[in-house]
């Protein structure tokens, strides 16, 4: 087993927010906290790209480095988790994280922060696996059930992949190879260009040529 990682293929993500919904539903994430979200670059402009972002479970996690109470730990599978009983809600991890993964529930007026909440790679936390205490604090522990994160498994276009980094690399490598084999530079097999055409020199989309009309029933072809 290598390291658990997420991989999002921006060529496939259709910004359906299914991963966000799956995460919230699976882990009973409170209102106002989004462990996962979909970020779209150039929204509404031809060629826009979306990517699903959550905790990336960094190999050298800055949140772990800045935590003043050392409540973070990394599992053998490379999943970055934390102990909510120790967290003081200072927010240092939020400032350190380049992905904006740490979330804080608003527990009162005047911006009072609760304990930090973030993606656990559906691996729970330092409570007995599958216990009600673990679910209440960290959400469901799918990893201990032999399952992968709900967001990745629910992704309809399989843009978001989750699991062992080596396996994900193999899947993505095969995907890229198949894309190259099935399409050409002018007619890609799928993606934005296949649906809307490639932009011309002025950046305006040029529609693809319509496919040939099917022959009428009974006509000789």
């Amino acid at each position: 087993m290598a390291r658990m990682k997420f991989l999002c293929d921006a060529e496939r993500c259709i910004e359906c927010n299914g991963c966000v919904t799956a995460c919230k539903q699976e882990n009973d994430v409170p209102w106002g906290v989004n462990r996962r979200r979909v970020v779209t670059i150039n929204d509404g402009v031809p060629g826009e790209r979306s990517i699903s972002v959550a905790c990336m479970h960094c190999s050298d996690a800055p949140c772990m480095a800045v935590c003043p109470v050392d409540c973070f730990y990394k599992t053998q599978e490379g999943v970055v988790l934390h102990d909510k009983d120790l967290c003081i809600g200072c927010g240092y991890c939020f400032y350190a994280c380049p992905f904006g993964a740490p979330q804080f529930p608003q527990t009162g007026a005047f911006g009072v922060r609760g304990k930090m909440d973030k993606c656990t790679f559906c691996a729970g936390g330092p409570e007995p696996d599958g216990s009600p205490e673990e679910f209440a604090k960290y959400g469901r522990n799918r990893l201990s059930e032999g399952k992968l994160p709900a967001c990745a498994e629910m992704c309809s276009t399989k843009a978001l992949l989750g699991g062992d980094a080596d396996v994900l690399s193999d899947i993505y490598r095969q995907r890229v190879t198949m894309r190259a084999a099935r399409g050409t530079a002018a007619t890609p097999p799928w993606g934005w260009d296949a649906a809307y055409g490639r932009p011309d020199a002025q950046g305006q989309p040029v529609p693809n040529a319509a496919p040939p009309a099917p022959a009428a029933p009974g006509s000789k072809s």
Binding site: D70, F72, L81, L86, G125, N141, S144, L161
Partner: peptide, 30 residues
């Protein structure tokens, strides 16, 4: 780390410490 110790995900049921079976299950899911 100053918090509570955590157990590996394959320690509890349904894998009961069988790391190989757990890894195989994850590989299949992946």
């Amino acid at each position: 780390y100053q918090g509570k110790p955590d157990t590996p995900p394959y320690k509890a049921a349904p894998f009961n410490g069988d790391k190989t079976q757990w890894e195989h299950a994850l590989e299949t899911r992946a």
